[in-house]
Amino acid sequence: MNPTKNGRDLKTAWDAFISDANEQAFYCLYGHYYDYFSFLGGKRNQRADRVADSINDLFLYVYENRSRLLNVRDHHNYLVTAFIRKLFRKVPVERELSGWLSEEHVYPSPEVQLIQQSMDDELKCALKKLIGQLPAKQHRMIYQKFYLGMSYREISLSNRVSEKTAYNTIYIAVDKLRNLLGKTVHYILSFIALYLPLYMLMLIAEGVSAVASQFENQ
């Protein structure tokens, strides 16, 4: 299995942000740690909205105090410690932290990104539209379940819903998507079935006219 993305690998992004306030780099850091911190918060049964607030508080601080953070050598440790301090409003005990620091279980394998990339654009559009229609809370549960790999129990605690609600939410979303995928696959196939012969005909017709014009010139 490919090694998962590691926060320490983002040193370049951190440096780029600290030195010239590069927003892309900032977002790169934000995205990575958003996942990681959501995972940590979920694992510690923290409410998802509080986790999200803490993440934003932390990154707001980082954004505004860029120049003060010049001396931060290990950005990963700094961010994790700061986040946990924010979330729990206390200085983390080293022992308590040690079990969390691994990002191994947070991120899906990069391999699966390839699956997504190989998907049809039109299909992606349809799926995105569907996901966009989900209420924020349901959307978050999907994220927690599939991206962060949290258990239904963790999700239910994190969102203050019952485990059954968490499960149903995810079931409904997946079912909808599955149906859509089925339809779209058929749609694409029928598109190909209809237009491929016509396309061939067009090519042949072009070829014939080209040959014909050659004869005329002679």
Partner: peptide, 24 residues
């Protein structure tokens, strides 16, 4: 199903971050 799960995973992650980042 697999495709849906994978897509949901990535799409939801992206959207979650974008939404949160917008707030930030």
């Amino acid at each position: 199903v697999r495709q849906a799960v994978v897509f949901l995973a990535h799409e939801s992650s992206m959207r979650e971050k974008e939404r949160a980042y917008e707030l930030l």
